[in-house]
Design a protein around this nucleic acid. Sequence first.
DNA 1: TTATCATTGTAACAAATGTTACGTTTTTCG
DNA 2: CGAAAAACGTAACATTTGTTACAATGATAA
Lengths: 221, 221
Amino acid sequence: MDAHDLFLCPICSNIPDNQRGHFVRALTFKTKFFEKGARIAGQGDPVHALYTLLEGSVKAEMVSESGTVLNIEVIRAPNPLAPAFLFAKNNRFPVDVVALEPCKLIIISKESVIKQLASNETFLQGFMTYNSDRVHFLSERLKLLSTKTIKGKLAQYILARTKHMDFVLDMNQTALSEYFGITRPSLSRSLSEMMHEGIISLKGKRGKVLDLGKLRKAIMQ
Amino acid sequence: MDAHDLFLCPICSNIPDNQRGHFVRALTFKTKFFEKGARIAGQGDPVHALYTLLEGSVKAEMVSESGTVLNIEVIRAPNPLAPAFLFAKNNRFPVDVVALEPCKLIIISKESVIKQLASNETFLQGFMTYNSDRVHFLSERLKLLSTKTIKGKLAQYILARTKHMDFVLDMNQTALSEYFGITRPSLSRSLSEMMHEGIISLKGKRGKVLDLGKLRKAIMQ
DNA sequence: TTATCATTGTAACAAATGTTACGTTTTTCG
DNA sequence: CGAAAAACGTAACATTTGTTACAATGATAA
């Protein structure tokens, strides 16, 4: 068992080799293992430590009291779990975290995280960058979901992947429809319509933008 | 002109009095003023510094090349502008920032932000907490927008404000409909239906939850 | 009070999206 | 290669939401 797996995690991966021994020795942490299906953290539990997933994968889910479940996200190793909530005013897990397979976690005390943030600039940058990228990701996702029409979402998605009027869809239509929060037939219909309207062409995953103006207009509606 | 206004900003407001002089002396910054309508930052500009709004208010907007404008957010003083992007991998402003009224900003170099984060634990905590709360806010907003039906959004919104089966709407219906990204008549219709279905009662801004089970079920659909 | 303006309720109709079902094409894998 | 599975296209119909318009109600200020 080796705490050095920690340096696979994006928060710590930039720490140079010659600082790693010192970094680990300065941490207060414990390693925990969870079996498939085990609850790693519960909705409402206070976040007193940095939970870092070194092996396995977990799902974050909301369980309502009526028993129904809303899947939020799947997180795979190596990645931190909710590092933002360690410092949030309302520092409680917003979801249940359940192991999808056997998991290994390193749980680092908040105090030693703060100490390391203050003393190790690489770690500071890594931690900040991770949370910043998370804000960025959430902002993009929000922008996509606030776009009301399916064609608008498609236009945004396609424009972000277009170079020299060519684009490649990086998911199949089923996955894309879930990403957009819509149904697969509706997505297919909208794609067809955009092709008939001469806005794009598409064969398999590869497509071309035929009318950039119309595509941009579609975002705004 | 006083840089000490900085300590009104939530990122710095926890720094104790006796550290403030030292804190300001250690910063590399400049103060800038913008007139109403002036562009403070442009979409795509690299974020090399921490922009802190001390006076006035700004709007963040996306301008497409077809000329149409999508309003993202209004930020009022005292608050930082996009502090998360200072550390993000793609460290560029995602939007245009335009002054809504005369504005005063303190622009602090990234280097001195890093130096202070490492040397001043209160500042570190403030900065982290701000970004963490931002993640929290965005996650909540995302959860709301991923809820597909209007009644689902309403159920979430109401449940989050319910104590002992009573709730108070903290916006009027026009504002609430914009918050949900829907139209006002549709919101009014859904509210009416929920009342006819015996799920809630509502008079003005005050309401009661009549059927908690049905309200919770509404979120999941 | 009264005139004015903002807010809310609601109805008729239009448009967009979901639902269900099924046939076709493409991919995967033995 | 060939069978099975996955992905995709599409049609008919149901449901939800948007659009537009107007009346009713409530709040505000002269």
